[in-house]
Amino acid sequence: MRYLIWRLIWFAVALLGLSLLVFAALRILPGDVASVMAGTNATPARVAAIRSRMGLDRSYPQQYADWLGGLLHGNMGVSAISGRTVASQIGSHAAITLPLIVLSLLVALSIGIPMGCQAALAGSPRVRSVLHTIAIVGGAVPALWGGLLLIMLFGRGVGLIGILPSQGFPDAGWHAPRAALISLILPAITTGLVAGAGIMRYTRACLISMEDSDTVAMAMACGMTRRQAMLRVGLRLSAAQLVSVAGLTFAQMITGVMVVESLFNLPGLGAMLINDVGNRDLIAVQSELFLLAAFFLLLGLLVDLMHHALDPRLGERTQHVGGEEHA
């Protein structure tokens, strides 16, 4: 409980710090955003108009306060380029990216954990070392290249076994759920395989570190076989660590997801951010980056709380129940 409160307080502090970081990084911009946005042959009057519309003529503390105030009221501003509100922009793009990330994580976990267990527990040492090599090499494949190879194998129209679409998202979006889901399969497998190799490595390492632990030996002494003890006790004791790894994988997977979105031509958050950063759409970039980073901070918080829930030793302060041992 004490940890929870402490963690929540620091979550708020970290959010505030993050907003300052985002704000400051975007203000040390060399040159004038307004004139960049107005174009090369704009009149000074037009530049001034853009500046005042975006609030750039005010002092930095005031701009910061305005932005933060807007965020607290759910008003993230309006994109200077598209004219849409930042909130609706994020919403429509996240509708592709979030399902993609979740699918990728599912692929990663459903490959990484069983294969990692096998890499640690397989009877033959040869199988174990082959699986270990697969895990290392798989984690070293750049997502971009992995995606290309998969397109060359399975991409409809281009691949050797062209069975899956490899370009674009259906125009109807999630109103055509089947088509939408199918268009995400190949991208999700791409990022899922690469991230899955990482999870496989960690699962293997966790289990191997449990191999000569007394706890596993005790479970075996109670009547479990080695395999049972490793899977039921070793894996359970590694669960807290594996949740942390899965959380970090989830966070870092977003790089691969953005690459894959661009490769598979999916209009997700990656495309939106790259576009806005390229256009130096200050207001939009500021809110978008802050919101995404805040999302990952929240994710980190959840993973931390889960980590604590999974390990009773971290729960409450250690206390001896029933007094000291009597001789």
Partner: peptide, 22 residues
Amino acid sequence: VVVVDALIAIPTVLLALLFAVP
């Protein structure tokens, strides 16, 4: 400890995008 725990979740690509603006 808590600040590191919090900030560790921010993905590399978001930081890169942030720094790429200026």
